Simulated assay, not measured.
Amino acid sequence: MSTVLRFVQHRITRHPQAEITASAQCLDPDCGWSALPTGDVASVDVECMAHTGRTRHTTFARQYEDVALVERIGD
């Protein structure tokens, strides 16, 4: 018995009908602040900057989520 392996190129992109969702969390050890997930990425950045203005906390973990689409190239 033999096996034939064929290399097939693929690409990965954001699904054209899906939105990116963003959220953030303050990394100050004594702070529990977070920006709720939203499709408005810029508003999460504004919320982080406003939080910094109120608290002087400057470090955030930002999360971005999207739906990926993997397609064969050349089909």
Rank of each mutant, 00 (worst) to 15 (best):
61 A>R: 00
35 A>G: 15
17 Q>M: 03
33 W>N: 05
62 R>H: 09
28 D>G: 11
2 S>D: 09
46 V>S: 05
14 R>A: 09
38 T>P: 10
8 V>Y: 09
21 T>H: 02
3 T>F: 02
64 Y>S: 04
37 P>W: 06
1 M>T: 12
66 D>A: 05
54 R>T: 15
15 H>A: 10
24 A>N: 11
38 T>A: 08
46 V>R: 05
51 H>C: 12
22 A>N: 04
52 T>A: 14
53 G>R: 01
64 Y>C: 04
26 C>D: 09
65 E>Y: 10
3 T>L: 06
5 L>P: 04
8 V>D: 01
28 D>F: 12
49 M>S: 13
31 C>R: 03
23 S>G: 06
67 V>R: 04
27 L>D: 15
65 E>C: 13
40 D>T: 12
63 Q>C: 07
69 L>Y: 09
45 D>C: 15
70 V>P: 11
26 C>P: 12
16 P>L: 00
13 T>Q: 03
32 G>R: 08
29 P>M: 05
1 M>A: 15
23 S>R: 02
6 R>E: 12
34 S>D: 10
39 G>H: 05
39 G>N: 03
59 T>N: 09
51 H>A: 08
1 M>Y: 11
9 Q>M: 04
23 S>C: 01
58 T>L: 08
7 F>D: 14
10 H>D: 01
75 D>V: 04
68 A>V: 05
47 E>K: 01
11 R>N: 10
46 V>F: 00
37 P>T: 03
9 Q>T: 14
24 A>H: 05
3 T>D: 04
54 R>F: 12
18 A>Y: 07
28 D>C: 08
68 A>C: 13
13 T>R: 01
75 D>R: 05
45 D>F: 09
46 V>T: 10
10 H>T: 13
45 D>M: 06
66 D>T: 13
64 Y>I: 00
51 H>Q: 10
18 A>T: 07
43 S>G: 08
71 E>A: 14
7 F>T: 14
4 V>I: 14
59 T>H: 08
41 V>F: 10
70 V>C: 14
30 D>H: 00
52 T>S: 15
47 E>G: 08
6 R>P: 11
30 D>I: 02
9 Q>W: 03
8 V>I: 12
50 A>Y: 01
46 V>A: 07
11 R>Q: 07
74 G>H: 01
2 S>K: 01
24 A>V: 06
70 V>M: 14
64 Y>V: 07
62 R>Y: 09
33 W>A: 15
62 R>I: 01
25 Q>W: 02
58 T>P: 13
7 F>E: 04
51 H>F: 10
22 A>M: 00
1 M>Q: 12
11 R>D: 10
9 Q>V: 13
35 A>I: 03
37 P>N: 07
